[in-house]
Design a protein around this nucleic acid. Structure first.
Lengths: 337, 337
DNA sequence: TTGTATGCGTTATCAT
DNA sequence: ATGATAACGCATACAA
């Protein structure tokens, strides 16, 4: 006989289903021996209460959604690790969703989650000045949301970010101090939250050092490797910057590849620094200078904020905003030889 | 009024819940206008049928579990991408679980999934000659499982692997042909499926070239970065191999770091080749020779196999085993200067 | 401490 | 084409 619900279990043991239920839910209203007998029997028959049925009763899914632009990326995979770590400790599971930086996917997934599919959402957004109504719906239903790294300013939710402005300012200033005069800023989307803030740090650092801002040196890239290669080849050949500040790891890699092609020597002809969570940045040729965000810690923090919200039983409206610090690692790619 | 179930929707529209349900499930037994009216109204009120309730009825979760040793790893994150790609197209969602290569975590998660939590499982295993009964339970309940990369030979399930033996043989042979005579094999767990197969390729290549197998040159490493650094430092100082064949990407990175420390020149003093899915292997110093598995394609294939099983309505017992080919990229780290 | 009965939101069956 | 109803598996209020 296959035991696949508490009714059958109850019949086998000659106990009521309520008692069975109590055995599984750590209720105090149950005799210790009865409980042991039930759990033992259940284990032998490899039975566990059906999660979907429990959820239908409780409105607790013990699941949280993680929505991110990409997975195969050092920053995000480390962040997921942090989130997973916390979730696991709380007995929660993770529903993962990748948006590929496509706003419509984000909307469609969030809408899908809107009817009790998960208890909360942790996300790094993929959009900009759009209509964020789909997120407001979540607020209405008291579904807690935590943003990390890429956030929407106009949505009231807990947020975990890093001191991007300061880091960008420092990175740009560093390049200027090594002698660069034509520092290019590489960005995928300069109107998205992080693209914007990071650019501001760049702009202000230039100003402080009396370098005129040059529109031509703000390089809009894409998410397509080949396209980026073309764009950067043209930039290095025609616009000829002497420094590169990349707001995204991937663009620094593309820069390296183009430099190899064109026989441009880093750091002699071009100094490079980039936002990056790559552990092996020191092993690159040349070792890459990085602004490294505490990705893992951000994941931990984001998850903790989510659980705070969950445990505060709705109510309390103090959405917390946490800002962690990135670290600047100056390596060979931006040093004076 | 908050519309959060089909009953309320039904009342608002003066339609029965059955009709509402039909509107959402692409039933043909419904008037086109009625359907449009319902969906339009639902959209305006941001309503979607409760997933858990539907599931309780249908026993279809539209969710699949992905169980892997680690996330922050180029191979696995690319594989997840492939899986996600297919799952998304099928309208499925992904429950992600990381085992940290700890067998007990794998067991506990699989057991948790055992009661209808997901429709199927894709996994890369974290164990070896253990008791695999927890997986046999899944078979009993007709829950399809697909293994990829790291598999249990004794479990009958669909499997996606790569030609590890051939690749290892070729990689080792390559090192020998560049003049290496003392090739070390770096491995995390030589009794696990891939560790074993890859080692066999190494051993056989040595034999073909009449190089005596030396136990000392099989280096057992760990998952801890610091420990590996210590181990490898000792190996390079005392055992002094002239070639390294690393069965895992991470150990190649550790080798690079130790070589930098000890001023050992790659490839002059030591040639290195490694299994690796790192896209930027060419940007390393020196460019790393790799055996690159088609991680993304493996993910795609694994997911496709799972859906085949799902769509075959249980029954059919031909568990498919697919073997994809890795590519050998010879770069500077293993070249004759 | 245990049992009985009800309802969570949905869909399939059957009737109209 | 639409509606009424039972059932999915579980957990709780209430009764005992």
């Amino acid at each position: 006989m296959d035991i696949d619900n508490i009714k059958k279990l109850a019949k086998e043991l000659n106990i009521s289903t309520s008692t069975i239920s109590r055995a599984f839910n750590g209720s105090s209203d149950i005799n210790k021996d009865t409980k042991e007998r039930i759990l033992e029997f259940a284990k032998q028959h490899n039975f566990l209460p059906n999660h979907y049925a429990s959820n239908l009763r409780d409105k607790k899914t013990k699941t949280l959604a993680v929505i991110i632009p990409e997975i195969a990326n050092d920053f995000f995979s480390q962040a997921i690790n942090g989130i997973e770590e916390v979730a696991r400790k709380k007995g929660f599971y993770i529903l993962l969703y990748r948006t590929d930086d496509i706003f419509e996917k984000e909307v469609s997934f969030v809408n899908y989650l809107n009817n009790g599919k998960v208890d909360g959402i942790i996300m790094s957004v993929s959009g900009e000045a759009n209509d964020h109504n789909y997120l407001r719906q979540l607020e209405k239903k008291h579904m807690p949301v935590v943003f990390f790294d890429r956030v929407y300013e106009d949505i009231e939710a807990a947020k975990v970010t890093t001191n991007d402005y300061d880091s960008s300012f420092a990175a740009t200033e560093h390049l200027l101090q090594t002698g660069c005069r034509r520092v290019a800023y590489l960005v995928v989307n300069k109107s998205i939250s992080i693209g914007k803030v990071r650019m501001q740090g760049y702009v202000d650092a230039l100003q402080k050092h009396n370098i005129a801002f040059d529109d031509e040196l703000v390089i809009d890239c894409s998410n397509d490797e080949k396209v980026n290669h073309k764009i950067l080849t043209k930039v290095l050949q025609e616009i000829k910057p002497d420094g590169i500040f990349s707001s995204v790891e991937r663009l620094a890699f593309a820069t390296y590849a183009v430099c190899y092609d064109l026989n441009i020597s880093i750091p002699r002809d071009l100094k490079v620094i980039s936002f990056s969570s790559l552990g092996i940045a020191p092993l690159l040729n040349p070792a890459l200078s990085t602004i490294t965000q505490p990705a893992y810690e951000m994941g931990i923090k984001a998850a903790n904020l989510l659980f705070e919200a969950l445990e505060e039983k709705a109510g309390s409206n103090h959405k917390r905003e946490v800002i962690l610090k990135s670290k600047l690692f100056i390596r060979k790619s931006s040093s004076v030889e």
